[in-house]
């Protein structure tokens, strides 16, 4: 029997406090890099563009002096995916796919085969995902949750010329971060209380309706308590003169000139790579 305990110190970020050129960047520059790499990884017309994003992500990780083993750990799941998608593509086929068969089982069965087109799909999935994994891993390791929220607030304030929406966004994300450990603890307490009262949480039935009903003793109190806590906190904040307006603004350091250049450079480079990918790589990769 295992203990009814789970990881309560859950956090979303994974900030690693070391000195590196990446850590030293202004949060705005970190965001800009995240944005550029992600855009390229996700929207590049072919996997070649995504591959470029992947290379940049690796470079960023090296510059951030992050332990490579840790940074690469999420990539393990890519292996399964590569195998699975290859199998999937092997079994299913895309309508109108006339590309070269890389691998096939018998000649007559068109379905049971892996074409070059399908290989391209697999490569695309794997490379794009790998780039995203490395980039997000890199980003969450070099910025604290608080810094991230502040930067978003600042960006929204500048972009929308509206401090209320910016502040709302910052407030709601700060609240979410603050509540997560509390709610997780409460979840554990309530699970324990109901287990003590003989709750099975649906493990004794196959009927989905019965299963969902058996989840009510857990789900209802957790959610209701969260709503109650929200009410209490709203009152406490009001008692502390919070109105959301006229607050002392966070003193954020201005973005250094060199980093503004970096941001512009990154944006330009992204656009350039995207264009190269579209005009040079796509016609070349497409025919298959």
């Amino acid at each position: 029997m295992k203990s009814l305990e789970f990881f309560r110190n859950i956090s979303i970020g994974q900030y690693i406090d070391i000195a590196s050129p990446m850590h030293a960047l202004h949060p705005a520059a970190k965001f800009a890099l995240l944005f550029c790499i992600s855009i390229l990884a996700l929207t590049a017309p072919t996997f070649a563009g995504a591959g470029a994003a992947l290379l940049v992500a690796v470079l960023c990780i090296l510059l951030a002096r992050l332990p490579l083993g840790m940074a690469a750990r999420p990539l393990k799941s890519l292996l399964y995916v590569a195998v699975l998608t290859i199998l999937l593509q092997f079994v299913f086929s895309w309508p109108g796919d006339q590309s070269l068969r890389v691998l096939s089982l018998g000649t007559s069965l068109h379905a049971l085969s892996l074409t070059l087109y399908e290989t391209g799909i697999v490569a695309s999935i794997v490379i794009r995902a790998a780039a995203m994994m490395l980039t997000l891993g890199w980003f969450t390791s070099i910025i604290t949750e608080q810094d991230a929220i502040r930067s978003i607030e600042r960006f929204l304030r500048k972009a929308l010329r509206d401090s209320t929406i910016a502040h709302q966004a910052a407030l709601v994300s700060a609240m979410a971060l603050r509540f997560v450990p509390i709610i997780a603890g409460e979840l554990e307490d309530i699970v324990k209380a109901q287990a003590s009262r003989g709750a099975s949480f649906g493990s004794d039935t196959r009927n989905p309706i019965a299963k969902a009903r058996a989840y009510l003793p857990l789900f209802v109190p957790v959610t209701i308590r969260a709503l109650e806590r929200a009410e209490l906190l709203a009152e406490a904040m009001e008692a502390r003169c919070y109105t959301g307006r006229g607050r002392t603004e966070q003193a954020l350091s201005p973005i250094p000139k060199s980093q503004i250049l970096l941001i512009l450079g990154a944006l330009l480079a992204t656009a350039a790579l995207w264009w190269v990918d579209l005009t040079l790589c796509k016609p070349w990769i497409r025919p298959y």
Partner: peptide, 12 residues
């Protein structure tokens, strides 16, 4: 605040 608290429920 309600949005933050319910987001936390989702995340938890």
């Amino acid at each position: 605040i309600v949005a933050g608290a319910l987001s936390a429920v989702s995340i938890a």
